[in-house]
Design a protein around this nucleic acid. Structure first.
Lengths: 167, 167
DNA sequence: TTAAATTAAATTGCAAACAATTTAGTGAGT
DNA sequence: ACTCACTAAATTGTTTGCAATTTAATTTAA
């Protein structure tokens, strides 16, 4: 329970014990991240269904509400998604008339994503979503802030690391 | 950047502004969890490939190294996975000779999962995996402990919540 | 003892995500 | 002008994961 990841006291117990502790499920940071993200996304489902949005569709819309008229590549960079995921997703959002996909005439390789009227309207309706969810999570606000900060730091570090220490 | 989730100062700015902030991508706890977990799992890939394990296979093995001879249902509860995911996964691990799947004779609905010799051996080889990864993440140990604690709390809260506030 | 309800695992179908490749458009060097 | 390298998006194929259903075994109730 309380054998968190840093409790590697090499003082008295043997080194092997410490290694084994790292293997313990409870110590696995990634596992917690993985479970939490999956479980929260499941909770989003009920809130997003009325708008025919999946979680991925929702974060795409969020990204656009923040900054409109961006390329697929831009969007992918911000959302950590590649074109293989985005292209079919964006086509679906276009079919729902939330966005428009416009291929640039100056450089036809680029496709710009713009909010359509329905997509702009959706922002108002979507306001209640994070509220419901945070209410549902019932997080201590002070706690949430620290958690978020830690995650952001990790996120950016993960981006930097080009697994040099592996190969 | 620093407009973390609790900065809802209702003192001077209007309430709408606070609602909009909740929609901001950077404020989205779930989004950070989602990205971090995906990115770390990607990093696992290189480390796990030599053993023909995916991340999901790895956490199944970890669960078994902690507690062997458990039912599929037990495993699912601990790993937050259902039989739809586990059954094919366990068949793959069986094909790799890491585990055995044994249907109980006393209650033939239950299938018990046991480590096979190769699966037991694997534990030793797997010791270096969390070490490489934590090294790769380069986390402040004090930081990691707090983060883990916060995630565990959230995990368990998510488990409790049977979305009563939604329907 | 038979019928109904419950349970565990397996199955089916579908959505999401990545890796790897392909297609097409652009820019640079000769 | 023409090749070569590069880039963006789209496509293809595979894996993961969930929801919903099915199958089979067990338990409960009548």
């Amino acid at each position: 329970m309380d054998n968190s990841i840093q409790n590697k006291k090499p003082s008295e117990s043997d080194k092997d014990k410490a290694s084994y502790d790292l293997l313990m499920l409870d110590n696995q940071l990634c596992f917690s991240l993985y479970v939490c993200s999956k479980e929260i996304i499941k909770k989003y489902k009920n809130l997003l269904d009325p708008y025919s949005l999946t979680y991925t569709g929702y974060i795409i819309m969020m990204a656009l509400w923040e900054k409109d008229d961006v390329t697929v590549k831009d969007l992918g960079k911000r959302l950590y998604l590649d074109s293989g995921t985005l292209t079919p997703m964006l086509k679906k959002l276009e079919a729902l008339e939330y966005i428009k996909r416009i291929r640039s005439s100056s450089d036809e390789r680029n496709v710009y994503i713009q909010l359509a009227p329905k997509g702009i309207d959706l922002k108002q309706k979507a306001l209640c979503i994070p509220e419901s969810l945070i209410c549902n999570l019932d997080l201590d606000p002070k706690y949430a802030g620290g958690l978020l900060e830690a995650l952001h730091k990790m996120m950016h570090r993960l981006e930097e690391t080009t697994d040099s220490s592996i190969d």
